[in-house]
Amino acid sequence: MRRLIYLLPAGLFLVLALYFAMSLRPGYDPHILPSAMLDKPAPDFALPGLKGDGVAKAGLAGQPAVVNFFASWCVPCRVEHPILMRLASQEGIRLYGIAYKDKPDDSARFLSQFGDPYRAIGVDRAGTVGLDFGVYGVPETYVIDRAGTIRKRFVGPLTAQAVETELLPLLQRLSRP
């Protein structure tokens, strides 16, 4: 029985090794933070449009909406763009864009080059709406339910897997009456 105490260091080592192994698992990125805004009302905002209508919180209400922060200078945004295009072509997904700290001309050129998946695009030159959302890098994508509450945040480019396993099921749940 007393001998068991000598196994204690080995046991501690195992616990630590397990902890480190967890942190090394593929797909785990310590830079991705959980949003502090989750399950809280989205900040009130009203942005002028890039072309045509702008984006405002009041305009999102009624149906679940997906808000995507992007910029023409952001390389990962180009990576996720084809996925946004596909999302937009699927029925019932209300995708809104917010051009974060981007010159309107550059945003327009970016969208004419790669396609425009958004119902409306708001121009956030100073990044203040991004700040209110807690954006710390583009792209970031938020799911807002019909009551205006933030239900999900994706940091970094959306992946096909995240769309299939998280975004679409969540939107389906939120669309149910």
Binding site: L33, P34, S35, A36, M37, L131, D132, F133, G134, Y136
Partner: peptide, 8 residues
């Protein structure tokens, strides 16, 4: 600031 970005 915490409201936007959390305790982190």
């Amino acid at each position: 600031v915490v409201d936007r970005y959390g305790d982190f």
